[in-house]
Amino acid sequence: MTQALPEPDVDDEDLVVLTVPADGAYLSVLRTATAGLAARLHFTLDEIEDLRIAVDEACAMLLATAPADAELTCRFEVAEQTLTVAVSVPSNGQRLPGTETFAWMVLAALAGSVRSDVSGGRATIWLTMKRDGSR
């Protein structure tokens, strides 16, 4: 059973939700969606690539904790100058990597604002990037 992610904080944004099997073979779908939505906001090519890599890294972190046969949900909140990506999998009680790890530092350098939470039976990582390099 898939649980819904929390509703976005901002009312005037577009919302795109993709759910794929929690398997690395499907990450290309999420990278492509990330690039398309970031391009829609007129992100630079470098910003688009950074965000694609960050989404891929966040997914890899979560896939390592996901139970077998789980689904990975990726929620894209598209605002006027900001793209927020929430990647989520069912939690089997494992903790996500800490903010002091190399993987977390890569996420923060690529996406700017990064946070995580394990609650309600789901592990979620949020990435937020603002257009024009203002992360």
Rank of each mutant, 00 (worst) to 15 (best):
Q81I: 06
V118S: 13
G121M: 12
L41W: 04
L45F: 10
V17P: 01
L27F: 06
V87D: 00
W126I: 02
V29E: 12
L51W: 06
A66T: 08
G93I: 09
L96T: 01
P67S: 04
V114N: 06
A22F: 07
R40Y: 13
D9W: 14
S28M: 10
E47Y: 07
A66E: 12
R31H: 01
T99W: 02
E77P: 02
T34A: 10
L96W: 00
A25Y: 08
E100V: 14
A33N: 09
L18E: 12
E13V: 09
R122D: 07
C74I: 05
A33T: 12
V20Q: 14
T82C: 05
M1Y: 12
A58S: 12
A38H: 11
L45M: 10
P6Y: 11
E57F: 09
A109Y: 14
G120H: 06
T73M: 06
G98F: 04
G121Y: 13
S91P: 13
D69Y: 05
L27M: 13
S91C: 05
L72R: 02
R95G: 11
A103K: 03
D23I: 12
A54W: 06
L27Y: 01
R52I: 00
D23M: 10
V55C: 13
L15P: 00
E100N: 15
L51A: 10
F102P: 01
G98Y: 08
T34P: 09
D23C: 04
G112V: 09
T34Y: 04
V85M: 10
G133Y: 04
P8G: 07
A108V: 11
P6D: 07
L41H: 07
S119F: 11
Q94S: 13
R131N: 09
V114P: 11
L127H: 00
M129N: 08
Q94W: 12
S113W: 10
A70I: 10
L110C: 08
V85F: 10
S88L: 04
A109T: 12
N92P: 00
I53Y: 08
A111S: 15
D9P: 05
H42E: 10
